[in-house]
Design a protein around this nucleic acid. Structure first.
Lengths: 408, 408
DNA sequence: AAAATCTTATTAAAATATTTAAAAAAGATT
DNA sequence: AATCTTTTTTAAATATTTTAATAAGATTTT
């Protein structure tokens, strides 16, 4: 079975290597296109039709590819179209938050084989990998999946993650930082680790609101503000994998002290935490607000959702609060737009649920702070599938790694 | 002759196409590596040694490649090494400034065949293309170059340039904006047009201070501030080709009115023009300064070089002036660092000649305004070959286009 | 509506290209 | 000088493309 060699590090040469690369390329093309005919494939991989057909025959024998009916024609015999075989290639994708994790098994059509499983954990959890493994094992048992058909495992996690090394610099215990290595030891599969905002960005790029936009900024607006960037159609990670640290962009000279040790970071003005704190303060100060009526005396229970809900019901205090943080984020985004000239910006995370209450001030702020020629064509959207974005991004990345030719 | 087909748009198929691609790949590898053996090439292009040798034989017959001696060995027969033939492939590179242009003919070893020629022009000059053509023609005559051996012509020019279309949106007359088309009509060669800051960035990346750094920011600090970005080893242009508009990043709320119509752009604080104006004002106000002594009554003659020169001689007024603009640029760069996590920043342009008088305040400012983890490893350098950076970048880009496989 | 014609896909066989394996050449190392 | 290594060449084996033939369906004509 051809894909396994990626793990076993078998050195391929000559014709065997050529064959292996071509097959991977076919799998990759089918992963992205769903179905293709032998003729189309022959053009895309640069071989003649007979060769293309013989490669497809071999892939069918490996049970990786199957005929999925006939395609359309514009006046001739209709072609047989090929696609990835269902139930033959799976990957495991996991996304971690501050206190929880979720994991799912996906097939080559990016479909979940069972509902996403949630569990309590954190990036500093000693048993993180074991927990993931156990959750996966129980899905595998329940759905009677052949474990050999699982080809890769990926994690999207908060922190300063170096994708190449699979290293999370934010994990406290030094010996636990090499996440990729721990995963490989436990699963013995292809492993991929990256930052959550970047994987969400990739998910939105491949399947969501940023689909088809080669230059997209995707903001994960939560307790921090993580900016995932798709530049020239690829995830951008920066020199050390630290790109997109939007949270700690200097926003106000001599502003409030931030957890990072600097003053006036964007995070100190517009994180979900700050929004809640400001709402709490307003309630404590008896400001006229629906929140005061509802939460007076138990301010610590206020959530971002509550504030958004109040805004929807016309609460001026909440609307103003969301407007102010929106304007701040918009100003910061304007700089990013000026620098990167994206064609779309997608908002995700708890705060983005506020929709027009943050969209409008952001849009306004972008107009004020950047050149019309550059920002004029930027679409500003809210993610419609943020729950799955990170998992789907990780899945797509795993398949890409699986089907890519590392040599070249 | 194989390369000409790129211009004639001959549709290649099957083995002919395969052969053509492989030859291009060999040329590309030799352009970047200077010399390679048949064995090394066979590995890099994925064919066996006999095939590699036969391809090299064909390229030799086309006079594109030649044996350049024998390579080293670690205990066996020494390999013949191949390289691009001198005097057989040339390109024309042109760089425009606000009021002047310079042009040179380069061989495949990136060497000038004659000194750079300078001439007066602007991007709005009706006869721009004719002027370039005539300058090239006279070099061709003087050096007896076979015009058929010139395979491409490139221009690096100021303005909002869309690289894909070869369109400069900043040119006033609508009908002159399609620069690539005008060039193709006149020269009938492969044509490449891009923004000057981006081409200088590419030059620094391939040959200069940013060499080997896959994520580099290169600042063209002149009348405007253009930021050329190398991200993941490629020039980054953005969705519409407008990326890197550093000049008009919002820097001061409700600041000075900028030519772009907005207020408080970085350009209004730290362009070469602003530096000169502030020096002039200081002289008019009889500030204690070497400049006052030298230029009182003829303030309009002050140049940036004069200010830098004064700073070098210890003039406190000039040192402070450069320090202030440096701090401003540093603060803006800090945001870019936070977003993009580059591994090197290179400064070029007239103001960068001030060396430590701007470097130190920039460095200081970066430290203050960005996370140590991200900015800690960033090198801050001054270009040592800015005069040629744009031309060399354009040259490298032309060869890359020439040797790349457009289909794929 | 059936037959003829056109298009495109697939298969088969011949022609060509490429790789593999073995031999020869050239130089390095012992 | 003998042995080892690596490159280059050669010839046999294999793979791939090309060309031609066949198949299958679409379109047009009768």
């Amino acid at each position: 079975m051809i894909l396994i060699q990626e793990i076993e590090h078998v050195e391929l040469t000559g014709n065997v290597l050529k064959n292996y690369r071509r097959k991977k390329k076919i799998l990759d093309l089918l992963y992205h296109k769903e179905t293709l005919s032998a003729t189309e494939l022959s053009k895309k991989i640069g071989v003649s039709v007979p060769t293309s057909i013989s490669l497809l025959k071999e892939l069918s024998e490996d049970e990786l590819v199957e005929v999925r009916g006939t395609g359309p024609s514009k006046g001739g015999r209709r072609p047989a179209v090929f696609g990835l075989k269902s139930d033959s290639i799976f990957v495991v994708s996991c996304e971690l938050g501050r206190y929880t994790g979720k994991v799912g098994i996906f097939d080559a059509h990016n479909q979940l084989v069972a509902p996403i499983v949630k569990f309590k954990t954190s990036i500093d959890d000693d048993e993180l990998i074991d927990k993931i493994y156990n959750e996966v094992a129980s899905i595998v048992r329940a759905k009677r999946i052949n474990p050999k058909r699982i080809y890769g495992v990926g994690i999207a996690m908060p922190g300063l993650v170096d994708e190449k090394e699979g290293y999370n610099h934010t994990i406290k215990k030094e010996e636990l930082r090499n996440v990729a290595k721990r995963m490989r030891t436990k699963f013995n599969k292809l492993v991929y680790v990256n930052n959550d905002a970047r994987m969400q960005a990739y998910g939105e790029f491949i399947f969501g609101a940023a689909k088809g936009h080669k230059n997209a900024l995707i903001l994960n607006w939560n307790w921090g503000l993580g900016l995932g960037m798709i530049l020239d159609g690829k995830i951008y990670s920066g020199a050390a994998g630290f790109a997109g640290e939007f949270s700690h962009i200097k926003f106000i000279d001599d502003g409030e002290l931030c957890i990072c040790g600097k003053r006036g970071c964007l995070e100190t003005v517009s994180s979900a935490y700050v929004i809640i704190r400001r709402a709490q303060e307003a309630v404590k100060a008896n400001t006229v607000s629906q929140l005061t009526a509802k939460f007076k005396g138990r301010e610590s229970e206020i959530t971002v959702e509550d504030i958004i809900q109040a805004a929807r019901l016309g609460d001026e205090c909440s609307i103003n609060l969301l407007g102010e943080v929106g304007a701040a984020v918009g100003k910061a985004l304007a700089n990013a737009i000026q620098l990167l000239n994206p064609d779309v910006i997608v908002l995700g995370g708890v705060v983005s649920a506020a929709k027009q209450y943050v969209l409008n001030p952001i849009q306004q702020s972008i107009h004020t702070h950047s050149l019309e020629q550059i920002s004029g064509d930027v679409q500003l959207l809210i993610s419609e599938s943020w729950e799955q974005a990170g998992l789907l991004g990780t899945t797509a990345m795993l398949f890409q790694k699986l089907f890519s030719n590392m040599y070249n």
